[in-house]
Computed example of a mutant assay.
Amino acid sequence: MTVTLIPMTQDDFAHYTSKSILVYADEKVEAGTWTKEEAPEKAEKEFERLLPEGLDSENQFLYAITKIEDKKKVGWLWYRFDPSHRQKEAFIFDIFIFDELQGQDYGKAALQELDDHALANGIEKISLHVFAHNRRAINLYEKLDYEAKDIIMSKLLNKG
């Protein structure tokens, strides 16, 4: 299976953000970072901070992950790259494969396509954040040669 990265349209962006903000809020709650009550508002504010101009936000690149064979969208990819960054590093903020298509190697194909795209655009390093409870994603990233560079660990003292 082959995918390509096609710049998001305004309609794509609206669908992406409406879903992704909720998913991000849930992930932050599951990670123990935010409470369930505060998570939706905090997630929305984080997206607004990072994407103040929506699709036109400086150094932010948002794509529809699209199957080459039939042009069907299978997910979304968002990364930041500032060409003046001294390490020529891109940071993946989100890779999202539609629920019904997960487990079919679209995430792997999208990340491999991103590698080619990145090299063609002067990017020398790709980094990302993954929640520790997302074992499926961690396994995928490790298979694609991503390595842990910084680990934060927590311990809940009142498990009652």
Rank of each mutant, 00 (worst) to 15 (best):
T2A: 08
T2K: 13
T2C: 05
V3P: 02
L5P: 07
I6A: 11
F13S: 08
F13A: 01
A14G: 01
L22V: 10
Y24G: 04
D26Q: 15
E27G: 05
E27Y: 08
K28Y: 08
V29G: 10
E30F: 13
A31S: 15
A31I: 07
G32P: 11
T33D: 09
T33M: 13
W34V: 11
K36T: 15
K36E: 15
K36P: 10
E37W: 10
P40I: 03
E41W: 07
E41V: 13
E44N: 02
K45Y: 09
K45Q: 15
R49K: 14
L50I: 04
L51T: 08
P52L: 02
E53S: 12
S57G: 10
E58W: 08
N59C: 08
E69I: 12
K71G: 03
K72C: 11
K72S: 14
G75A: 06
W78C: 06
R80P: 00
D82T: 13
S84P: 00
R86P: 10
Q87E: 14
E89P: 01
F91I: 05
F96Y: 10
F96P: 00
F96G: 00
I97R: 05
I97C: 05
F98H: 10
F98P: 02
D105P: 00
Y106G: 04
G107P: 02
G107T: 01
K108P: 07
A110Q: 05
A110M: 02
Q112G: 02
L114I: 09
H117S: 02
G122W: 11
G122E: 05
K125P: 02
I126H: 01
L128Y: 03
L128R: 00
F131W: 15
A132G: 15
N134A: 04
A137K: 05
I138G: 04
N139D: 09
L140S: 06
L140F: 09
Y141D: 01
E142K: 12
K143C: 04
Y146R: 05
Y146I: 10
I152E: 03
I152P: 00
K155W: 01
L157S: 05
N158Q: 15
G160F: 13
G160R: 14
G160Q: 14
